[in-house]
Write a protein that binds this DNA or RNA. Structure first.
Lengths: 128, 128
DNA sequence: ATAATGGTTCCAGTAGGTGGAAGGTCAAGG
DNA sequence: CCTTGACCTTCCACCTACTGGAACCATTAT
């Protein structure tokens, strides 16, 4: 498979796949013309990374998860630990965003949103 | 005031204040020794930006909001529009994160988390 | 032969700062 | 007067995870 096929099948942009090669996730062979050639295993790895990324795992998490995935003797506890850590980070981000959301939607509700200059949103931002 | 005083009073790191000067938010005068000198108005502006940033507004949003703040003839509708746009982005992020969270916490619940290698988390990531 | 498509490398830029080096300045204490 | 330590300066690099674009080579279809 060429990179375009892998891109289509994995759902990742070709640029991202090249980037993932740069940072060492995959090492596709090269054809005589210099083109990358991917086998099913590499496609699989890329899809794995793509799915992990979409669940909010960082690139470093992906390295760990891939290593665990390829380690037949892994303990599921190790995977669970990484996943729980990620969950905690997701929860922290949600909490942050919800706090912002609460403040902001309160301010929006208070703002008349008309032609006049008086604005509780600006008042709040400016308050010392 | 020197930059350290402003940092303490605004809650922003001195590095960030220098950065905000670089990108044109403030233009503090300089003393004979080259030190930046800040007046109350600049402190105020920095605090305004800090608060806006903590509510999730981008730097570009901050530029808009500051301009509105300094425009006596603004319409509160303009401020409200920026705020609503930001709220929509926050909501989109929360929704994304909650979708991740749901999938991930489901997988975590299914994983035994022991010494055995079987792991529904990896199975899910690997599934084509 | 040519055009469209797809591949390659490399460099730069994104957002919003943060870290660190190398060096100038100022106030207080011995 | 000198030193120490806290502050200040600039500049350059680095962070995450890509993304865009230029310049160029290869393949395929017409």
């Amino acid at each position: 498979m060429n990179i375009g096929d892998v891109a289509r099948r994995s759902g990742l942009p070709a640029k991202t796949i090249r980037y993932y090669e740069d940072i060492g996730f995959i090492k596709p062979r090269r054809g005589a013309n210099g083109y990358r050639y991917f086998d099913e295993k590499e496609l699989h790895k890329l899809a794995f990374i793509g799915r992990a990324r979409s669940l909010g795992f960082t690139i470093e998490d992906c390295r760990t998860l891939l290593a665990l995935y390829e380690d037949e003797d892994r303990a599921s506890a190790d995977v669970k630990r990484v996943a729980k850590q990620n969950l905690a980070e997701i929860d922290a981000k949600i909490a942050d965003l919800q706090a912002m959301r609460a403040t902001l939607s309160h301010l929006i509700a208070e703002c008349a949103g008309d032609h006049r200059p008086d604005c509780p949103i600006l008042d709040d931002l400016a308050k010392c």
